[in-house]
Amino acid sequence: MTSHPSRPVADLFSADGRLKAIPRKPARREALLAHLAVTLFEADRTYREPEVNAALRAVHEDFPALRRHLVTGGFLSRTKDGSDYRRQQRPGSPGGAIPSAA
Rank of each mutant, 00 (worst) to 15 (best):
V9K: 00
H69C: 06
P23Y: 02
G74M: 04
D16C: 03
E42M: 11
P50I: 03
V38G: 09
A102W: 14
N53K: 14
M1I: 12
R45C: 04
R48F: 09
L66I: 13
R90K: 12
N53Q: 15
A10N: 11
T39M: 10
R7C: 08
G95N: 12
L12I: 07
I98P: 04
Y85H: 12
F63P: 00
L76V: 01
A58Q: 08
P91F: 07
P94W: 07
L33C: 05
S83K: 15
S77N: 05
R78F: 01
L33N: 02
R24E: 13
D44P: 01
Q89L: 13
N53A: 15
G17K: 05
V38P: 02
A15D: 15
T72F: 10
L40T: 07
V59T: 13
D44F: 07
K25V: 10
T2S: 12
P99W: 05
Y85S: 00
T39K: 11
R7V: 08
E30S: 15
L19P: 00
D84I: 05
L32I: 09
P50R: 07
A54P: 01
P50Q: 06
P5L: 09
F75H: 15
Y47H: 07
K80N: 11
G95I: 03
V38M: 10
A58P: 05
S93M: 13
A15L: 15
K80G: 11
R87N: 00
D84T: 10
R90Y: 04
R67W: 03
E30Y: 05
A102I: 10
R57Q: 13
M1L: 12
R28G: 06
S93P: 01
V59C: 08
P5D: 10
Y47Q: 02
R68W: 06
A27D: 15
A65W: 06
E51G: 14
F41C: 02
R87Y: 03
A31D: 06
S93G: 09
P64A: 06
G95T: 04
A15N: 13
Y85I: 00
D81C: 03
A31S: 15
A37L: 04
G73S: 08
P99Y: 01
H60N: 08
Y47S: 03
D81Q: 10
L32F: 06
A15C: 05
A27V: 14
R86A: 10
F63Y: 15
D84A: 11
P26H: 14
L33R: 01
R87H: 00
P91G: 09
D62H: 11
E51A: 15
A10I: 09
P91D: 08
R57W: 12
N53C: 12
R24V: 10
L66F: 13
V71A: 02
A37Y: 01
A58T: 04
Y47G: 00
K20F: 04
D44W: 10
M1V: 12
L33E: 00
T72N: 12
L32M: 14
V9W: 04
Q89S: 12
G73Q: 05
G82A: 08
L12Q: 06
G73V: 07
R24D: 13
A10Q: 14
L32C: 09
E51D: 14
R18Q: 11
G74K: 04
L56T: 00
F63S: 07
P23S: 02
R18P: 01
L66W: 03
E51Q: 15
S100N: 08
R24T: 13
P99A: 13
L56C: 01
Q89E: 09
E42L: 12
G73D: 06
R68E: 07
Y85L: 01
R78C: 14
L76H: 00
Y47D: 01
V38D: 12
G74W: 00
